[in-house]
Computed example of a mutant assay.
Amino acid sequence: MLGDNLYLVIMLAGVGILALVVNFVLTTREQDSEVRRERLSWLKTQAEHTLNALSVLKESGCRQDIVDKLNQHAMALIEEISLLAPDSELMTQVSDLKETSDRARADKSRFNSDRAVKRAQIYINFAEKLIIQMAKAGKMTGQLARTYQQELYWLNVSLVADAHHHQAKRLLEMGDKHTALSHLKHAKAVLVRASAPQRQKQPKLDELQASIDQLQPRRNLGAGALAESLDDYLNDQP
């Protein structure tokens, strides 16, 4: 009788331990699966944004070394996706997006609408933030990151100014001089306010000013009252 009870206790203890083991395994798998899902979700967002940013940078004529650096980051993201979900729909989507990004070429005519410019600005800003994150992660020096930030900032400014200039040319062809002049002045204002070296801004400013002067010639106000007073003063001297 005592032996039977002991046997029953051992059996119950074994069942309990087995249940704990099974529960631990299932819980661990669920946790691993959740971590994997969260990681894939993050990778999906980062890969899509990075690849879209690469397309925009290539189309806007960005410096090749910046493009190369971001492309390395995109490849690392894709490689991790291939390890976690090699045959998934996500892998297919990201691969297609990578092919689209690889085919992108410099073409500023793609940024001639307000919607296209705003989209481009979003991804250029994303690229700028990504550069900062990469520098913090030790993937580039702080000095190089600051240089890249300045380049991306100027690219953003140029994109907006060039878009307004293009719209002005298109409106002139349609005979709408008033609205064209408004776009030219807006483009000039964007450049004037930009925190960039004057030597970098000047060529675009000169081109815009020439176009503005054609539509709105500067008034010739003469020498002015101060110059006339000086002339009178000099003429009265012995």
Rank of each mutant, 00 (worst) to 15 (best):
G138P: 02
L159C: 03
Q150E: 12
T141Q: 02
R119I: 05
L159A: 10
L130H: 10
A145T: 09
Y153H: 12
M140L: 13
H166M: 11
A168R: 01
A127W: 03
Q149C: 08
L144Y: 10
M174C: 05
I131R: 08
I122P: 00
F126H: 10
G142R: 05
M140D: 01
L155H: 05
G142D: 02
A168W: 07
S158V: 02
D162V: 03
F126T: 08
H166N: 11
T141G: 15
A127V: 05
A137H: 02
Q150D: 13
E128F: 03
M140Q: 05
A127L: 03
K169H: 12
A137P: 00
Q150L: 10
Y123R: 01
M174W: 07
N125V: 07
K118D: 15
Y153C: 00
Q167H: 08
A127C: 10
L130W: 07
Y123V: 04
I124G: 02
L130S: 11
E173Q: 15
A161N: 05
H166Q: 12
M134P: 01
Y123T: 05
K169A: 10
D162R: 11
A163M: 12
L144H: 05
Q149V: 06
K169V: 01
A163Y: 08
A120F: 04
A137I: 00
Y123I: 01
W154P: 01
F126P: 07
E173G: 15
G142W: 01
M174V: 06
A163T: 08
A145M: 09
K129E: 15
Y123F: 15
L155M: 09
K139P: 00
I122N: 07
A163K: 07
H164A: 12
H165D: 08
K118H: 09
K129V: 01
V157N: 07
A135H: 00
E173N: 13
Q143N: 02
H165E: 14
A135T: 03
H164V: 03
L152M: 12
M134D: 05
A145D: 04
L130V: 01
Q133C: 01
F126Q: 05
A168K: 04
V157H: 09
A127P: 09
E151V: 08
L130D: 11
E128D: 14
Y123H: 14
N156I: 00
E151H: 12
W154A: 04
K129R: 12
H165A: 10
Y148S: 06
W154D: 09
T147G: 07
K129T: 08
Q143V: 06
R170V: 14
I124T: 07
L171A: 03
L155K: 04
H166K: 11
L144S: 08
G138V: 02
I131S: 08
H164F: 13
A135N: 03
N156Y: 10
Q133K: 13
R170Y: 04
R170C: 00
H164Q: 14
A135I: 02
Q149T: 12
Q150K: 10
Q149H: 07
H165S: 14
I131E: 06
E151M: 04
K118P: 02
K118Q: 14
I122A: 11
N156V: 02
Q167N: 15
K139R: 13
H164P: 03
K169F: 07
H165Y: 13
A137V: 00
L130T: 14
L152N: 06
M140E: 03
I124V: 15
H166S: 15
K139F: 00
R146G: 02
A168F: 04
E128Y: 03
A137E: 13
S158F: 04
A145Q: 04
